[in-house]
Design a protein around this nucleic acid. Structure first.
Lengths: 222, 222
DNA sequence: GGATGTGCTGTATGGATATACAGTGGTCCC
DNA sequence: GGGACCACTGTATATCCATACAGCACATCC
């Protein structure tokens, strides 16, 4: 059963009171906070919240209000968003195979999250891309490595970019010559890709800003 | 001014009560927990703790006990240790230049801590070593990279090891042939190091289990 | 259209709680 | 040996607090 808006307000107050004052409120304090004129108003709300299983009341005990874990499901939208953002700031999505046409950070592309903050890298990383193939071997970027990528469409000559060419994601060094873009591998076994920008579109997904090898169940040592 | 042992016990109880019950105790609950026969015993202790600045008492309010941040300085040894361990588990020490003779993880060798849990790698990493030089270039290990190291003296042929040779720390691929150990670079510009184990000692500090590039103020992109 | 739930007002009360006051015995310091 | 702090006992009390009881208005469900 869901909480009413008023009940959610009361629950928010309980949480705030606990976090700011270090103890649960009395009925009288709830009354004062909401401008009620009767302690029963507070009591009724507490009973309703208990019945719905989000708090626990300890009979007889002053301030005997306990927030249960389930109460977190009823966090206000704003708080939920803030929490999710805080959690995301401490981890990076790992992008594996990229489905054709889909945005690189769309749900199906994200394999998992890696517990490393994006601003560990400079400029900050927005996601990690699992490298496929040996085309950047001589730049120390190997098959299976996780490439930290700063998501931006702006790239300059000489930077290592993550680019999308006809729905293929590729990591290369960018070279711009007038209306021509060259995507240079770092491996003599591969050939440069030449893109005539007046006829084809080259989508720059981001810049390589770092690299992780050997994490997440892909042991280097056996 | 320091807390007496008894006062520290009371403070511990206050913390535990808050964490387990979700609210501070009453004087009566303190009395019950410690077997006092008078509420004044509890009151006196609370006053002493307030005078020493570790808690705050709110006059008139039931359960009006607030633990101040300074109270953390008086955590029991066991709890302090547990906290420190928890914090360490979520980060790895970064070892830069290694001073001659000193253990690799001794304080002066640790530059900083990197906010990544050691068990992100398999087997788990115990520290990160800043790579110096290009001798492992063709293995994708470049100058300035942070090498994740699993600390162990056991290594087999073919593994990438962190070894100490006459107070020099080096990263190489290990090859064992009878009584001879070879430390092989992954770069034709460098020569293998041959160690006769019957005459010299080779200290294996650990195994390379991962790698991080571009983190911590060493931007790949400018 | 009665039952049920929400969201209140208003009053009352017993028991829970903080807290004052008066002691005791101990230690440590000057 | 007096003064401080410590660690308590024992009693008393004003007030804080949870909580019961009696209502009212409004909505929703069957």
């Amino acid at each position: 059963m869901d909480l009413t808006p008023r009940q959610a307000e009361i629950l928010d107050f309980l949480r705030r009171h606990r976090d700011e004052q270090g103890l649960p409120p009395t009925r009288a304090e709830i009354v004062a906070a909401f401008g009620f004129r009767s302690p029963t108003a507070a009591e009724d709300h507490l009973r309703a919240l208990e019945r719905k299983g989000v708090i626990e009341l300890r009979p007889g005990a002053s301030r005997g209000i306990r927030l249960l874990e389930r109460a977190d499901e009823y966090l206000s939208e704003a708080v939920q968003l803030a929490r999710r953002e805080a959690a995301n700031e401490a981890s990076l999505p790992l992008v594996g195979r990229v489905a054709a046409g889909a945005p690189i950070l769309s749900d199906p592309n994200v394999e998992t999250r890696i517990p490393l903050a994006g601003d560990f890298f400079r400029p900050r990383a927005h996601f990690l891309l699992r490298v496929q193939g040996e085309s950047m071997r001589d730049a120390g970027i190997l098959d299976g490595d996780l490439l930290a990528v700063h998501q931006t469409p702006e790239a300059r000559s000489g930077q290592t970019v993550v680019a999308r060419l006809e729905d293929e994601i590729t990591v290369k060094t960018l070279r711009l010559k007038g209306g021509i873009a060259e995507l240079l591998p770092a491996n003599p076994d591969f050939s440069p890709i030449v893109v005539d920008l007046s006829r084809e579109t080259l989508v720059i997904e981001g810049l390589a800003v770092g690299l992780i090898r050997g994490g997440f169940g892909s042991p280097l040592v056996r």
